[in-house]
Amino acid sequence: MDDHTQPTAYLLVDGENIDATLGTSILSRRPESHERPRWDRLLHFTRERWGGSPRGLFFLNASSGMPMSFVQALKAIGYLPVPLSGPPEEKIVDIAIQRTLQAMADRDGDVMLVSHDGDFLEDIEPLLGTDRRVGVIAFAEFRNSGFTQLMDQGLEFFDLEYDVRAFTSPLPRIRVIPIDEFDPTPFL
C-alpha cells in the first residue's frame, strides 16, 4: 500500500503540557532549548510506526503574541501550527484539541495525541474500537491513569523518551523497568 491509499495519521501535539511536565516533574526547572523534545522525531516516529504521511498539528497558546521563530521552525519541519487566543481562565489549547478529537469521529485517519492530560479521555474513548489506530505519546510515569484503562480498548501508548527517542540526551527520570528490559550497565 502506498502513502496515497493509507489513511492519514493525525499527530496532535499539546506542547505546553509536554513542556510543563518536562520542566516541573522531570527537570524541576524551565527546560533549556536543547533539553526539549526534537519535534521532528515525533513526525518521523508516527510515519515509521503507522506509515503514511502524518499531519502534525501543533497547538499553541498565542494569546500574548505569536511566537514567530517557533512557528517558522514548526512549519519547516512539517507541522501545521495552530495558534490560538482566548481568555486566561480558559484552557484554549485543551479546548481546541478536544474539538479536533471530536471532529475526528466523522473522519478517517489514525490519531496520535501527544499529552499527559486526562482532559482528553472523554474525546479519545469514542475513537477506540474502530478500524483506526489511536495512540498517546507522553512520559509513562506522568500520563493520566485514565489512559491505562483505555489501553484495554485498543489505545496504544508510546513513551516520549524511550520509544520515540525525542531527546538528544537521557533525561533524569526514574522509572519502573520491566525485567525483560533491565540492563545493569547504566547503573554501574
Rank of each mutant, 00 (worst) to 15 (best):
D108Y: 10
F187T: 05
N61I: 06
Q72E: 12
N17W: 02
H34R: 09
L11N: 01
I26P: 02
K75S: 10
F58I: 07
S69D: 09
D94C: 09
M66V: 15
Q149S: 12
E122Q: 14
L113A: 00
E89T: 14
P186W: 00
P67R: 07
I177C: 05
S85A: 11
L80H: 10
Q149D: 12
L160C: 03
E181R: 07
G135L: 05
A140Q: 14
V176M: 12
R36L: 13
G56F: 00
E125Y: 09
T148P: 06
T46C: 05
V71W: 04
T130F: 00
P83T: 03
Y79C: 01
R165S: 10
G109W: 00
Q153E: 11
G51V: 05
S145A: 15
V114W: 00
E32D: 12
R30S: 12
T24V: 13
L160I: 06
E90F: 13
T168Q: 11
P31R: 02
A138E: 07
Q153L: 12
D163Q: 06
M151Y: 06
L12S: 05
D163W: 03
Y10M: 12
I95M: 10
I77R: 02
D3L: 13
L27R: 05
S63K: 05
Q98K: 13
L57A: 06
T24A: 12
E90A: 14
A9N: 06
A9T: 15
F182P: 00
T8S: 08
E161A: 07
P178N: 07
Q153A: 11
S64C: 11
H4T: 15
A103I: 11
A105L: 11
M112L: 13
L22K: 00
L160R: 00
Y10Q: 13
I124M: 10
F182S: 00
H4Q: 13
G129A: 07
P83Y: 04
I18S: 00
S33E: 13
G52Q: 04
A103M: 10
T148I: 15
L60C: 04
Q98S: 12
G135N: 04
M104W: 08
T8Q: 10
Y79S: 01
F182Y: 07
E90S: 13
F167P: 01
I92K: 11
T185I: 15
G118M: 09
P126V: 04
V13K: 02
H116P: 06
D108F: 09
L127H: 04
